[in-house]
């Protein structure tokens, strides 16, 4: 793998020189820069197109699988389909970071389509971190699609972070939940300069006593623009909660349109949303602790996106 990939791996996959004893696949500029399966986690190429099939045996416990993807130069448009089959009762961590680096005038783009099939009673912590680097004029673009199907009693926690450097992003996430399945999504997003980010969540709770908790925190700085759509559908006795907080700095703009659909009398759906600049009194408080205006803003944003 090249130096840029190496650097990305450190940022997005806690990489420290090697992936020892764990299952991983490193995707670099559309090719494979390393792969390893373990006894319980198999990683195979798709027979019919770009991408992987990741199969996690039932009741696999405590393993982590890394599926990072890196685009390290301009004029690459990488498209990949990865399917994750998580066996019944498995409890694993999946880390799927992505970095794009543009060094020239042309676009550098990664478009990862991840599908998750969580077996009954399985538990997945899915971590996804996105970064853009490079001083080329070409746009850095990451367009992730995440589709999840949670069987009965499955739990998926998705932790997704994108902080600076990605010029354009369209993030689409869908989920279908069976009985007692639980989906928790934490999104943290920061845009700056002329960056644009579109986020779209669509979760359908089909099963009785299923539950979704969607927490999105974002900061729009510079002249950046963010659009946030979420739709939570409850077609059974279920609970859905979404919370969308955005902070504006400078000329940042945010358009948030949350949607709730209750198709059942016992569907309890709540949405909370707040957009605004940093509260003046928060800045005042931190100034009384000795920070300047800029330092105070930085600390508040850091904490907010923690």
């Amino acid at each position: 793998m090249n130096n840029i990939t190496q650097k990305f791996l450190e940022i997005v996959s806690d990489y420290k020189g090697s992936f020892d004893g764990v299952a991983y696949n490193i995707r670099e500029d559309g090719g494979c820069a390393g792969r390893q399966s373990t006894e319980h986690i198999k990683i195979e190429s798709k027979p019919d197109g770009p991408g992987l099939v990741i199969t996690i045996d039932p009741h696999t416990k405590g393993e982590t699988v890394y599926i990072p993807a890196c685009v390290t130069k301009s004029n690459i448009n990488d498209l990949v389909y990865n399917d994750f089959y998580v066996g019944e009762g498995a409890d694993v961590v999946i880390v799927a970071g992505c970095g794009v680096h543009a060094d020239g005038d042309a676009e550098a783009r990664h478009n990862g389509i991840h599908r998750f099939f969580l077996g009954k009673g399985s538990h997945v912590l899915y971590k996804e971190k996105h970064v853009g680097t490079g001083s080329g004029k070409g746009l850095r673009r990451i367009d992730p699609v995440t589709d999840m199907v949670l069987e009965e009693d499955a739990v998926m926690e998705m932790d997704t972070i994108q902080i600076r450097g990605v010029d354009r992003t369209t993030r689409s996430t869908t989920g279908v939940l069976k009985a007692r399945a639980k989906l928790i999504i934490h999104e943290r997003l920061m845009t700056d300069g002329e960056e644009r980010a579109l986020t779209d969540f669509n979760v359908v709770m089909e099963g009785e006593d299923s539950k979704v908790d969607l927490i999105s925190r974002s900061v729009a700085r510079g002249s950046s623009y963010q659009e946030y759509h979420s739709k939570i559908t409850g077609n059974n006795r279920c609970t859905g909660h979404s919370e969308c907080d955005a902070i504006l700095v400078g000329n940042g703009k945010v358009n948030a349109s949350p949607e709730l659909y209750a198709g059942h009398l016992d569907a309890e759906l709540i949405h909370e949303a707040a957009i605004g600049k940093i509260a003046g009194e928060q800045i005042l408080k931190l100034k009384t602790l000795g920070l300047t205006q800029e330092e105070a803003e930085e600390k508040i944003i850091q904490g907010f996106l923690r």
Partner: peptide, 12 residues
């Protein structure tokens, strides 16, 4: 009237 901060921990 103390100020509240979303995200900042007591430690920080």
């Amino acid at each position: 009237q103390p100020v509240r901060f979303k995200g900042l921990t007591v430690r920080s």
